[in-house]
Design a protein around this nucleic acid. Structure first.
Lengths: 157, 157
DNA sequence: GCTTGACCTGAAGTGCACTTGAACTTGCAG
DNA sequence: CTGCAAGTTCAAGTGCACTTCAGGTCAAGC
């Protein structure tokens, strides 16, 4: 199946990474991954690209945008194949991000407890949905509790 | 409540709800809220629409789509102004959803701990990014750990 | 050499949740 | 009655992360 070199075809990459071929092309166009070409113009991927894709998928799961992921990937060493330590280094920042997301959700859940307890869902008092007391301070569109969360969940205001 | 003058203008609604006027129009077009009109065709909102908007914002923070929110709102009683109990009832389902989201994030965080510990980020072994052992079972595009999470965070696969 | 499936490109389409723009009308203060 | 901020409609645009399509090319097994 595999000839002299250990370069991988698009088909092999889709099978091994779970990403669609169109996604791989997209990532290449966006500068997140790279590929060499055969004389006929077909893509051939080095094996370590799989690790890059693993990183991309993991980062997506944490909620990073492709732009952020690209930036993170840019911090990898240029000349050599990244070591496990390199990957660990750039992943370390994720922990804080995840912690924040978890905390925001927990606050939301606890606020919800209160709201369900009192049935208050209101612009004036509700802890999980109260833009009113923020509107004056930040202008319209601001949200009380889960600002962090909203940034993660919605594309733009 | 019988006075005709406590209807709110668009401007008052944007100020009190934090939603942009365009968003209010959009929600009306989508059937999430309603408004009466002046003889000249301008919108006038009843006060209880603010509560509906509070619900919408809260639900968005929990991660529901407008479609889901619309469905939830549809469960409110038709004839009368919803009571706190009505709101509490339809909010109750959120708790489970939030719990699931939190758990998914916690699993992700704990997986990340392991990955950082061993620096393994790999298609083959990494707990937070391993489509490989799923690919055969579900086909391409499937993701090991945070399926629930991915559904929440990405529009479609 | 032929066939066939894998692969190529560039442009356009998708889905959500809105926003923006253009061109026009209403409503209220002075 | 006038001026003008605030409101109206409909169409089109935005941003992300892709997917789909049309129309062609490549690589490998027979």
């Amino acid at each position: 199946m595999l000839t002299g070199t250990d370069l991988l075809t698009v088909g092999q990459m889709t099978a091994r990474s779970g990403f669609a071929a169109s996604a791989l092309r997209y990532y290449e166009a966006e500068g997140l991954i790279s590929a060499s070409r055969t004389s006929g113009g077909q893509r051939r991927y080095e094996r370590h690209i799989l690790r890059r894709l693993a990183f991309i998928r993991a980062a997506q799961n944490i909620g990073l945008s492709l732009e952020e992921i690209k930036e993170a990937l840019g911090k990898l060493p240029e000349g050599r194949t990244p070591t496990p330590a390199d990957w660990a280094k750039i992943s370390r920042a994720w922990r804080g991000r995840l912690e924040e997301e978890i905390e925001a959700l927990v606050r939301l859940r606890d606020g919800l407890e209160q709201c369900i307890g009192c049935g208050c869902l209101s612009m004036k008092r509700c802890r999980i949905s109260n833009p009113d007391d923020v509107a004056g301070r930040y202008g319209s569109g601001a949200v009380t509790l889960p600002e962090l969360l909203r940034e993660d969940r919605r594309t733009h205001g």
